[in-house]
């Protein structure tokens, strides 16, 4: 099978994730969309690794997973505490971070 097809899939997943981040209000969904984008990137990295015949891409994919795990920890904690204080998981309700 032509590896380029994996790249197409990766681009499709990334676009779905990006659209989700932009249009959904629920923090959890936004969060999952971000995960989707990260994983789309991982797919692309692994594909490139395969295409070019070296392991750099796979190494970076592992890095990304570690970062994603850390992000999940921090991000979910923030969402939970936000939900506790506001009784809502909508990102638009938390708009205090401005000048």
């Amino acid at each position: 099978m032509n590896p380029v097809n994996y790249l197409y899939l990766s681009a499709l997943l990334f676009t779905i994730g990006a659209t989700g981040v932009l249009i959904r209000r629920n923090a959890i969904v936004v969060f999952m969309c971000i995960e989707l984008m990260l994983n789309a990137c991982n797919l692309a990295f692994v594909t490139f690794s395969r295409m070019h015949g070296n392991l750099d891409g796979q190494v970076i994919a592992f890095f990304t997973m570690v970062v994603a795990a850390a992000e999940v920890v921090v991000g979910l904690a923030i969402i939970v505490s936000l939900f506790r204080s506001r009784h809502s998981a909508s990102v638009d309700d938390a708009s205090l971070m401005k000048l």
């Binding site: 981040v21 932009l22 936004v30 990102v91 638009d92 708009s95 971070m97 401005k98 000048l99």
Partner: peptide, 12 residues
Amino acid sequence: RRLQNGFARSYA
């Protein structure tokens, strides 16, 4: 300053 409206999605 208006651009900094605090909505995470507009930053995105």
